[in-house]
């Protein structure tokens, strides 16, 4: 599978590491949130069948983090 690094272009997936779901917002007032909200922030992630917005890092290349959209069924990648 080729993954498009925004800096290096298409590279083999073995050069990358997966960083999970993108757009997971840190609680605005972390000290004030209750345990359930905190647990939801730490552990709960979307798991769609279809398009998922994800973080990836080009570990073996430029070591930059970036966001892309991957279809979890077809692995078709589109830029975020």
């Amino acid at each position: 599978m080729l993954i498009p690094c925004p800096w290096c272009g298409d590279r083999e997936d073995i050069e990358f590491k997966y960083g999970g779901s993108a757009d997971v917002a840190y609680p605005r007032d972390a000290d004030a949130v209750d345990d359930a909200t905190w647990a939801r922030f730490v552990f709960f992630r979307p798991n769609p069948k279809g398009q998922m917005t994800e973080r990836w890092v080009h570990t073996a290349g430029c070591r930059r983090w970036f966001t892309l959209v991957r279809d979890t069924v077809t692995h078709q990648i589109t830029t975020a």
């Binding site: 290096c8 590279r11 073995i14 050069e15 073996a60 290349g61 430029c62």
Partner: peptide, 10 residues
């Protein structure tokens, strides 16, 4: 130039 993997070595 390029950074990549030579088998498993950066």
């Amino acid at each position: 130039c390029a950074q990549t993997l030579l088998v498993k070595a950066h």
